[in-house]
């Protein structure tokens, strides 16, 4: 079930993980794991299609860079459009989260009219 919930928010999660700065796919997954305290342990293969899709949508940009080890890696960074999209999604999420929080932690069930 957690996986299904996560799927709907993968774009926002990946954008948030990249908001700190450009990173390659493996580092993005590590960052998601670290920032979620290990709660978001996705099948790693689900993140790469999201990176490609967000790039196609103009929310990310990518380029090959050569690491110190000599290995070439694809590094992704958030575009200005991506920053705006993340801000919008964050706002929507905060409203949604507040509403669910109020609903779950709020008043008890309504009493039936006498």
């Amino acid at each position: 079930m957690e996986g299904e919930i996560l799927k709907g928010h993968l774009d926002m999660i990946v954008l948030a993980a990249l908001s700190a700065g450009p990173a390659h796919g493996y580092a993005v997954i590590e960052e998601i794991r670290r920032r979620s305290g290990g709660a978001f342990d996705l099948p790693e293969g689900t993140v790469y299609p999201v990176l490609h899709r967000l790039e196609q949508a103009g929310l990310l940009t990518s380029r090959w860079v050569t690491a110190d080890s000599g290995r070439r890696r694809r590094v992704y960074g958030v575009t200005k459009r991506g920053d705006r999209a993340l801000a919008e999604r964050r706002e929507v999420w905060e409203k949604f989260s507040e509403a669910i929080g109020a609903l779950l932690g709020g008043t008890g069930p309504c009493k039936a009219p006498a």
Binding site: P43, G45, R53
Partner: peptide, 20 residues
């Protein structure tokens, strides 16, 4: 194993390829 099933990963990329 942690990466996930190759068929499922390929299916996700196939959608991107088609949209592109």
């Amino acid at each position: 194993a942690n990466f996930g099933d190759a068929d499922a990963v390929a299916a996700q990329f196939a959608i991107i390829s088609l949209a592109k």
